[in-house]
Design a protein around this nucleic acid. Structure first.
Lengths: 235, 235
DNA sequence: GAGCATTTGTCCGTATGTATT
DNA sequence: CAATACATACGGACAAATGCT
């Protein structure tokens, strides 16, 4: 009984012996192997997918998933690029938009701007192994950066740009939780179903004086990245 | 087209107008309402369930889910009991086991004990509105507490007990991530499918001297609790 | 570029089991 | 005990994306 659970168990063992990127047998093959319906086989694979163990691609097959560990700690720079590189994958980030726009009230407040103030907003999209994995926006405090400096292609260097402009950017406070990608983000991920994501917000201030410089808000796919947060109480 | 997505959208609107605990129409009613098969209706409800919007109970029906927000911050005591009470629900915690047992190597190390040392381990199970929602264990450092003090029924008072024994318990470091409940935990939750959970580890030390007192490891159901972690860099 | 086989995505219809009320 | 409602499984059909020829 419970043929789905049996298929799940069996496939789990198989996956443990495979490497990320390896293909698992087609649904048709699994039907004959387990003597089950396609519906049952699919249920089992859906369970594995919801555990982030496999990813499916229509027309291509089902493959063992690779997941990056990202540790966020007070004493460590939270570099997804480094974490990705360390695990042998390739990370790329593109700025897909820069604009001046009236900032939402909460963000304006954090950046010390008046409600409704027009601020510079960068939109970026990050890829891991050529798949979109993270998506987010950065809001710059008034006067933090000259707009002329923003013809950059990678956002990893944004703190570098801030530093070059005479500031001493340090992260002031971060907020991490999980959510489901809002429609405009899910669209970037070319997914329709609810995509479980990490929601990470960070306020960057000037180490000399504490003036707010930048507010960052990002959504990162949970099936591509596992975030671990370590924190200590401030005495 | 995409009848499942249509049902999801429609039910989302309905749910937004309902209160936690309210019942949504039966699958049979939804079949006639949308002119779809039960399979499609179930798919839609499964999507809502995976977003933690509803919970299903065989024989009873499908109900709008209630989720507690728990904010973990360096300057705040992470009290799930308080968060639950503040949202109008009832939290109860029971100690379901106390024993002396050889501690896992990593835990012994954190508590300053020799590898393989026998330590006191408490197992507890937490309920929200009479449903199991959190499950975990506490390991006590050697000499931190007299075993005779452990005939307590609620673990919320554990720091109180430590304090009464002359210590000044403070959280030293916490580690938060998401996972899927291991079998023995899922069993406590009376669930077979993979239950998405928060995995929270905390080391408690003595404020006077920094001696480790207790290591806590807990699994909390994501469909019952939403955790938000706020942290600041230590300069 | 066109055509084709493979593979996953979606939906329909039906039957039976099991927990709740 | 009976009715209700969710859980699980079977079987078939067509659509859509992929990868290869």
């Amino acid at each position: 009984m419970d043929i789905v659970a049996e298929i799940v168990r069996s496939l789990e063992e198989d996956i443990a012996r495979l490497a990320p990127g390896d293909r698992i047998p087609s649904e048709h093959d699994l039907m004959t192997r387990f003597g089950a319906t396609r519906a049952s086989v699919r249920r089992a694979i859906e369970v594995l997918e919801s555990r982030f163990l496999v990813r499916r691609s229509q027309g291509a097959g089902t493959f063992v998933n690779r997941r990056i560990d990202l540790v966020l700690a007070p004493d460590r720079a939270p570099s997804l690029h480094e974490a990705v590189a360390a695990s042998g994958s390739v990370a790329r980030t593109f700025v897909i938009g820069t604009e001046r726009r009236a900032a939402p009230e909460d963000i304006a407040a954090r950046l010390g701007a008046a409600a409704g103030a027009e601020l510079t907003r960068l939109t970026r999209l990050g890829y891991i192994d050529d798949d979109p994995a993270t998506c987010g926006e950065e809001w710059l405090a008034p006067g933090a950066l000259d707009v002329a400096d923003l013809h950059l292609k990678t956002v990893e260097s944004l703190t570098e740009v801030l530093r070059a402009s005479g500031a001493d950017p340090v992260r002031a406070r971060s907020r991490v939780s999980t959510a489901f990608a809002p429609p405009e983000v899910a669209e970037r991920f070319t997914a329709r179903d609810p995509v479980p994501v990490w929601h990470i917000e960070t306020l960057t201030t000037d180490g000399r004086g504490g003036r707010p410089l930048m507010f960052s808000r990002a959504w990162t796919r949970q099936d591509r990245v596992r975030v671990v947060v370590e924190y200590e109480p401030v005495p």
